[in-house]
Computed example of a mutant assay.
Amino acid sequence: MRFTRITRTLGGLLLAGAALAVPAAPAVADDEKPAPTEAGTAFRTAVAIEQGQKATADASTGDYLYWQFPAGAGQQPTVKATVTLPEASTRNGDATWRLDVFDGLRRRQACSSGEPLRRAAREDASVTLTCTLRTVRPWAEKWSNDPLPGAYYVRLTVGDAPDRDMGLPVKAEVEATAEDAGGARAEGGSLGAPLHAKAVAEPEDGWDGSWWSGRWGWTLGGAVLCALAAVGGYTLTRHPRRR
């Protein structure tokens, strides 16, 4: 009877630990800001967007379109841009579109995956570009080009197109999202301040990332299992079964 009570108690602790090991889903704000319907024409006029917002803008072929979004330590940002092209009958040939992402110091960041450069054929109705950055680090050496917490700039433009197609109307849609890299990328250190992030809102988990990591889950679960095994072994040793 005593062993059963102890087992049930520790079983409850194990379930509680498992519940703690799973981070709660972020609450959805009721007062979300409307997504921007315009873009800037330079770094200084880049329009701020939040993660998960789908910003749109009406523009002309050949324009440089700029947005900026926030990203904190431990996040791996992905930018997706879709350009709705002019009617095929009004275009004179193929065009190459380009998506670039820069950090708060305006250093161009390499894409770890995605298609940031795509060629649209004359008959295509739209073209989609993507860029997934490396995981944002809480700090880095001065000589490195690692992505750091702060604002990130998105630039969308046409790389090359027939001269007669310049100025034709297009519609752009841009969205920036980010995945949490988790405990596998947890590391110490942090910046004194995010890189040029006055215009963008701080991420939900802060610039330095969430306090939670997968290591906490493994540590807590392991501790509960060890306690369960220890008490179970002690109980069996003190009260051997009678034949």
Rank of each mutant, 00 (worst) to 15 (best):
E141F: 15
T128F: 03
V136F: 05
A184E: 14
E87P: 03
L133Q: 11
R134H: 13
W211I: 06
K142A: 14
D124Q: 09
E115M: 08
G182A: 05
Y153L: 10
R155Q: 12
D103V: 01
E115F: 05
P138E: 13
N145A: 15
A184G: 05
S126K: 11
E123P: 00
E115S: 09
H196Q: 15
L148G: 01
V136Q: 04
V174L: 09
L99Y: 05
T96C: 01
T177C: 05
P86I: 07
A120F: 00
V170L: 08
S213L: 06
V200C: 02
L133G: 01
A172S: 03
R164H: 03
E179V: 11
R134E: 13
E123F: 12
A161S: 13
L195S: 04
V101G: 06
K171G: 01
V158N: 02
A140E: 12
D124M: 02
E173L: 08
L105T: 12
W207Y: 07
E141D: 12
P138V: 09
V154G: 00
G93R: 00
R155C: 04
A121W: 11
L85W: 10
G104C: 07
S113H: 07
A178H: 05
R185K: 12
A199F: 13
E123M: 12
T90D: 14
A95K: 02
E187P: 00
G209C: 00
P203V: 01
P138C: 10
P194G: 06
A201T: 08
G159H: 11
A110P: 04
R122W: 00
R107I: 10
W139F: 11
L105Y: 11
A186G: 08
R185H: 12
D100H: 12
L168K: 11
D146K: 15
R155E: 11
G182D: 09
P169N: 12
G192H: 10
A197D: 07
R119V: 02
N145M: 14
A140F: 14
T132N: 01
L168H: 07
L195V: 09
Q109W: 10
D100Q: 14
S210R: 13
V154F: 06
T130N: 04
P194S: 05
V127M: 07
A88Y: 03
E202R: 07
A121H: 12
A161P: 08
V127Q: 07
W212T: 01
S144Q: 13
N92Q: 13
A151H: 11
T96R: 05
V136T: 02
P147V: 08
A184W: 15
R108C: 03
P169M: 10
A197L: 06
